[in-house]
C-alpha cells in the first residue's frame, strides 16, 4: 500500500498542495481528476519521488520512499510523466529496453528480452520497434514509453495523463491493458486522467482534486454523479447509465 501523509508543496509563495493525505489501495486503479492546475501532476510526482515535498511523507509498505534504495524502489514503483520530449537518437526497442535497467543495470539478459518483447507485444509496437523515436507520432511515442513502464514490471504503476495524444482505439487499448495488469497480475495503477468517462469506465476509485486539496474521494460508483462533478469542475453535467456504465454528458 502507498500512503500519503500530510504532504504539502509550495512554489514560491503559491501553495500548490496543502496538507494532503490519501491512501492508494493496492490491486486497484485509482484515478486523479480535477481541472488544469489543480495539482494532480504535482501530487503524482511527489508520490513517486520525482519532486521533493516540503512537508509530509509518502510510505510504501509502511516505509518512507526516501529511505528505500533508489534501485529497489524502481522495481516496485514506476512513473511516467505527462510529457516526455527528448532529443535522442534511439530506436523504440532500445527505449523500451531501458525499463529493465533496475534489474540488469544495462546488461540485458535473456529474461530481460522476454519482458521487453512482451511489452512490445502488449502495446502492439512490433511494426515500429525498429524506428527511431524522432520519427514517431506523438501517440506512438506515448505508447513506446508506456511499453517501457510495462517492461519495468513494477507493482505500482503511476501514469500522468497516459492517454495524451492517443486516438480512441489506443486509448481503449491502454485502459484495457491497465485493467488486465491490475486484474491478472495484481498490480496497482494510479493515473491522472482528464477524460471523465474513461475514469468512470475503467477505474475502481476516484480522487478529485481542486486547488491542491482533495474535495472528494471514493469508489467510482459513488463518485460519478452530477453533484460531484459540479463541485469539482463547476459545471452542470448530467450522468446517464448506458450499458451499465455511468457516462457523463459534458459536451454541451
Amino acid at each position: 500500500m502507498v500512503e500519503v501523509k500530510h504532504v504539502s508543496k509550495t512554489y514560491g509563495s503559491k501553495k500548490v498542495i496543502e496538507n494532503l493525505s490519501v491512501d492508494i489501495q493496492p490491486g486497484k486503479i485509482t484515478s486523479f481528476i480535477g481541472s488544469n492546475g489543480a495539482g494532480k501532476s504535482t501530487l503524482l510526482s511527489m508520490l513517486s519521488r520525482l519532486i521533493s515535498k516540503d512537508e509530509g511523507q509518502v510510505l510504501l509498505h509502511g516505509r518512507d520512499i526516501h529511505s528505500i534504495k533508489p534501485n529497489d524502489l524502481a522495481k516496485e514503483l514506476s512513473i511516467l510523466k505527462q510529457s516526455n520530449h527528448i532529443d535522442l537518437r534511439i530506436q523504440v526497442r532500445d527505449l523500451i529496453s531501458f525499463g529493465r535497467f533496475p534489474y540488469s543495470q544495462g546488461r540485458l539478459t535473456k529474461e530481460d528480452w522476454v519482458e521487453i518483447n512482451k511489452a512490445i507485444h502488449y502495446m502492439e509496437l512490433e511494426e515500429i520497434q525498429e524506428r527511431y523515436i524522432d520519427e514517431l507520432s506523438g501517440g506512438q511515442l506515448q505508447r513506446a514509453y508506456i511499453a517501457m513502464i510495462i517492461a519495468q514490471d513494477t507493482d505500482y504503476v503511476m501514469l500522468d495523463e497516459p492517454l495524451n495524444n492517443l486516438d480512441m482505439k489506443h486509448s481503449v487499448q491502454i485502459m484495457k491493458s491497465l485493467r488486465k495488469m491490475v486484474e491478472e497480475m495484481g498490480k496497482t495503477a494510479v493515473i491522472v486522467i482528464h477524460d471523465i468517462n474513461f475514469a468512470s469506465c475503467y477505474s475502481d476509485r476516484i480522487v478529485a482534486l481542486k486547488h491542491g486539496e482533495i474535495v472528494r474521494e471514493g469508489p467510482t460508483e459513488e463518485m460519478i454523479n452530477s453533484e460531484m462533478l459540479k463541485e469539482v469542475y463547476d459545471m452542470d453535467i448530467p450522468v446517464q447509465l448506458i450499458n451499465g456504465e455511468r457516462i457523463c454528458l459534458h459536451f454541451k
Binding site: 533508489p70 512513473i79 519495468q152
Partner: peptide, 15 residues
C-alpha cells in the same frame, strides 16, 4: 545512457 533520457526517467529507473 539512462541519464540521457532526462532526469525524470533516470529517477524512475532507480538512479
Amino acid at each position: 545512457n539512462v541519464m540521457a533520457l532526462g532526469q525524470d526517467q533516470a529517477v524512475n529507473l532507480g538512479i
